[in-house]
Design a protein around this nucleic acid. Structure first.
Lengths: 188, 188
DNA sequence: TAGTCTTTTCTGAAATTACAGAAATTTTTG
DNA sequence: CAAAAATTTCTGTAATTTCAGAAAAGACTA
């Protein structure tokens, strides 16, 4: 596959940023290449285009698969496996957040629950309190995210665009309740 | 410093999760220890409690400092430096998001802007479109976050608790505008 | 300003991770 | 079922990262 200069830049960047994102160079570049390609690509093409060994590409694809970031496609009369990534950037984003949550947050939440349930030793009042605080914060954030996940993309975009202005709506929710209730009956 | 069993568990976990969070074991454990300690701790104490070399603790604290996650405190008649972390978990959380954004997202946003501005080569219609899409998504999300950052904690908590229900308010915003206008005239 | 206490930086060794090529395994097709 | 094609796993090496101890630098005091 032929890469233009801007594609090169994009792909290299994903390689370099890999370490900050917790993936390695190979994986980052493979993903970037697939993201930019309209057509599905087979492992050999990836290997040749990026100059990685065939085995490395295999490992990279396996890693991306574990992140649910690639899809395999088959063409008839060809037993090669062709890879793509989902086209919808919002879908990609949601997948990414979900996986990071699963890997980076859930284990901690689980540990915190265990620790909080264990019998309290003497002299650990403060530390227990802090563990509880961390637990509550994480639970609130993940709960919120899981709730928001159900909102369809278009509505989510509207909410994001509204941003903190949404708070003004919230402040008026009692009044709004009056209206909503008013239709049925009357005010509080 | 004496560690109870639950503190041990908590600290070890932060060490183990370190690699997933992009920090090393030492740094993770130092942070965890400071988080659980009500009193500021000096580097020697950290070193002794966790069993790391004094130099490693110094490096770790420097790393945490670069994340703006520690504070230094001095006591009179003692030239030792004592370390703490901010007590408010929300403040910690905001700092963490800000720093991660700075390290993991901003460079990519910058790369995308550059690439998008560069003259388009032939045959890269699709890839350019995808780069633009990624750029727009990231810009929208970071824009939203920066906007939300201004909202004070208590209000933010209310919004989080409201979760996707906030969308129902949004759907009624036109009605609400009527009320808001009405209120303005009647009072204040 | 010398002496002592404290922190930071340097250095090389140890551990971990990344990776190419080889070997093994699986899948497809005749 | 065997041959061929493709993928995955294994293995050794290279590169990177982590870390302890040594050396250097800085801060305070007598």
């Amino acid at each position: 596959m032929q890469l233009t200069e801007s594609m090169q830049t994009f792909i290299s960047h994903f390689g370099e940023m890999g370490s900050r994102w917790g993936i390695n160079r190979t994986v980052g570049q493979i993903y970037a290449l697939l993201y930019l390609s309209k057509e599905p690509i087979c492992a050999d093409d990836i290997s040749e285009t990026l100059g990685f060994s065939r085995s490395n590409v295999s490992m990279g694809l396996k890693e991306l698969d574990s992140w649910r970031l690639v899809r395999v496609k088959h063409f008839q009369k060809d037993r090669k496996e062709y890879y793509t990534v989902p086209e919808d950037v919002w879908e990609i984003f949601r997948t990414l957040v979900e996986e990071r949550k699963k890997r980076e947050i859930d284990p901690t939440l689980s540990m915190l629950r265990d620790v909080i349930l264990a019998p309290k030793a003497t002299g650990e009042d403060y530390s227990r309190e802090k563990m509880q605080e961390m637990h509550d914060l994480i639970e609130m954030l993940t709960g919120w995210y899981m709730d928001m996940q159900k909102v369809e993309t278009e509505r989510l975009v509207n909410l994001l665009k509204l941003g903190s202005k949404v708070y003004k709506l919230y402040e008026m929710k009692d009044k709004l309740a009056v209206i909503a209730g008013g239709k049925k009956k009357e005010k509080r």
